[in-house]
């Protein structure tokens, strides 16, 4: 069943702040094998002009995707998450995420379309710090693959 187009433009309430921890950044950097000292050494980060260690560029996805759960799990929208794959991902940064940030995400449905039976939904997450300053924006395209004909009773 096609997703309801009237959801395009709908925004969800800002999430409770996620506090970015130094050790969580380190854990992530180690998991992707990235030894850049800006992620683990506050002095190295400061030498680059950052007030504390910064997070790798894609670190923030864990936060924005969790926030996108408000959309994905919205029973009124009715997205079948078991059929969802990640299509595209984009980030635009006002500044890098850094240790000590308390980040809140506001998710908005930017677009919904149907292509060859697949439902495609674009979700934008605006990430702000505790002072209300914009940190970055994440765009996530999710594709819910068409249901098998048998499951549709066809």
């Amino acid at each position: 069943m096609a997703l309801d187009q009237s959801f395009v433009g709908r925004s969800y309430p800002p999430t409770d702040p996620y506090e970015v921890g130094r050790e969580k950044i380190r854990e992530f950097a180690e998991a992707v094998g990235d030894a850049n000292p800006a992620y683990t050494d506050a002095k190295a980060a400061e030498a680059l002009g950052h007030p504390d260690v910064i997070a790798p560029p894609t670190f923030v996805f864990a936060i924005t995707f969790k926030a996108a759960g408000q959309v994905i799990e919205d029973p009124q929208l009715g997205l079948d998450y078991s059929r969802v794959v990640h299509g595209d991902q984009k980030f635009a940064y006002t500044r890098p995420v850094r240790a000590g940030d308390r980040l809140s995400v506001t998710s908005t449905i930017e677009n919904i379309k149907t292509l060859a039976g697949n439902e495609i939904i674009d979700i934008r997450g605006e990430v702000h710090d505790e002072a209300g300053e914009h940190v970055m924006t994440a765009w996530t395209k999710l594709v819910a693959r068409a249901a098998e004909p048998a499951e549709e009773g066809a």
Binding site: D34, I54, D88, F91
Partner: peptide
């Protein structure tokens, strides 16, 4: 994970990961 690895080619080149202004991929 693949997206995180790919950008290392850029962050290792430029030195400061904070120099990334935009980054997008299609899977």
């Amino acid at each position: 994970f693949t997206m995180a690895e790919a950008i290392r080619v850029v962050t290792d080149w430029v030195g400061d990961p904070g120099a990334i202004v935009e980054y997008g991929v299609r899977f």
